[in-house]
Write a protein that binds this DNA or RNA. Structure first.
Length: 176
DNA sequence: ACCCCGATCGTA
DNA sequence: ACGATCGGGGTT
């Protein structure tokens, strides 16, 4: 059982997004197995928040890999990302689902839902999850098969197969 | 100052 | 299929 290193997050965003599937996200007293991710990669990705440059909201996307990026969407929900690749290159992986054994999966199978359950808010924006002792990701050796699809809820960049999701059927068989 | 839109979710 | 709800980003 090992906390993911800086080098893990510095890999290509697609690699990080795929490898995060089955990793265990820890925040406060919660531990959730990551079941769904999406990659948002640089200024050439029209769906990336940083596609039109740095703003106050997205500035943490330009920070070093292993930094959390939390933003408010639709005025109601928070979404959690982990920044990837080299510092100054705006890219991140959106966490879209986690499996928490004690909690009905229906309550953690969406990016807004999992933040609500785990009480992740903009307070957690810009946290270094490599250095933090209460917000980090562990490798517990869980291997899960996943499907690759296009991303959800975006209006541009719809064709890119940058979403990775564990089959619904297999969720209940996750150890833990 | 104003306007438009959004990496969502629950209900219908 | 649709509305809730409000911060942020672009424009005047």
């Amino acid at each position: 059982m090992q906390k993911l290193s800086r080098e893990f997050y510095e890999q290509s965003t697609l690699e990080v997004a795929k490898e995060l599937i089955g990793k265990v996200m820890v925040f406060d007293s919660f531990e959730g197995v990551i079941t769904e991710t999406e990659a948002y990669i640089g200024k050439d990705d029209p769906a990336c928040h940083a596609a039109r440059g740095k703003t106050k909201r997205n500035e943490v996307m330009f920070a070093r890999a292993g930094t959390s990026y939390v933003y408010l969407i639709y005025g109601m929900y928070h979404c959690l990302n982990f920044v990837t690749e080299e510092e100054g290159f705006p890219a991140a992986v959106l966490i879209r689902g986690v499996y928490i054994p004690q909690i009905d999966y229906k309550r953690t199978n969406g990016p807004g839902k999992l933040c609500k359950i785990m009480d992740i808010t903009k307070q957690q924006n810009g946290v270094d999850i490599v250095e933090s002792n209460d917000f980090y990701v562990l490798d517990k050796g869980i291997k899960l098969d996943y499907d690759t699809t296009t991303r959800i809820g975006i209006s541009q960049g719809k064709e890119l197969p940058w979403r990775f999701v564990v089959d619904k059927q297999k969720i209940s068989k996750i150890p833990g």
